[in-house]
Amino acid sequence: MGYYPPVAHVLIIDDDRSLLDALAMAFEDAGHDITVAVDGREGLEAVERHRPALVVSDVNMPHVDGFTLTRRLRDAGHGLPIVLLTSRDSEIDEALGLELGADDYVAKPFSTRILLARVTALLRREALASAPVDRTQRLERNGLALDAERLEVRFLEQPIRVTVTEFRLLETLVGRPGVVFSRDALMERMRGDDSVVAERIVDTYIRRLRRKLESIDAEFAHIETVVGAGYRWRDA
């Protein structure tokens, strides 16, 4: 099957005009239609007016910041994917907060290639959401079902909303049960990029994944911490 990266209308929000312009160029080059906004307030207006398929937004902006923007969009019932651009370690945790509803984050200074890949993955997930399920693409273990094409996770038949990164992390662990992955190895596999992020971010992801899975089954204990080594999927 031939593969064409999905193109869509993308709204880019950043208060740094040079960066905004550079991003606009990169998205234009990738074939996306773009709308730009310089702060969250303008961004909210642009969502209402242009109905983009996806939002890429800076976190730290005057008036309405990226977090507030995300919350407001979700509160208003917009389900479109949102990718946040963070520049502080402290923002990353919050960027992916369960209650916030952002789909992914990319840490500055990022590679536009990686950003575009993330956006593409998210757009494909959206596009496949309504298509029939192809069972062959599924990875199932201990009640957990991963659909690599749709980036969809189901646990005990209940869907779980995960980011691209979280999906890759789960895929890596579930794909080779019992094998211990170091934080370094997990970083490598799940991010697939060269952005400089502290290793402890892995712990944050694991914590968040556990929370999501435990919200469905409080007894969930398949992701095991191996002290001094990393993490593994426990099959028992």
């Binding site: 740094d16 550079a22 160029m25 080059d29 520049s87 500055k108 200074p109 536009t112």
Partner: peptide, 25 residues
């Protein structure tokens, strides 16, 4: 220092994006 790093990351990100754009075309 965190603020400073934050302030520096924006222009660095823009420079990186521009250089990637130059390399890609």
């Amino acid at each position: 220092v965190a603020d400073l790093a934050h302030e520096m990351k924006n222009p660095v990100a823009a420079i990186r994006a521009a250089s990637e754009s130059l390399a890609g075309q």
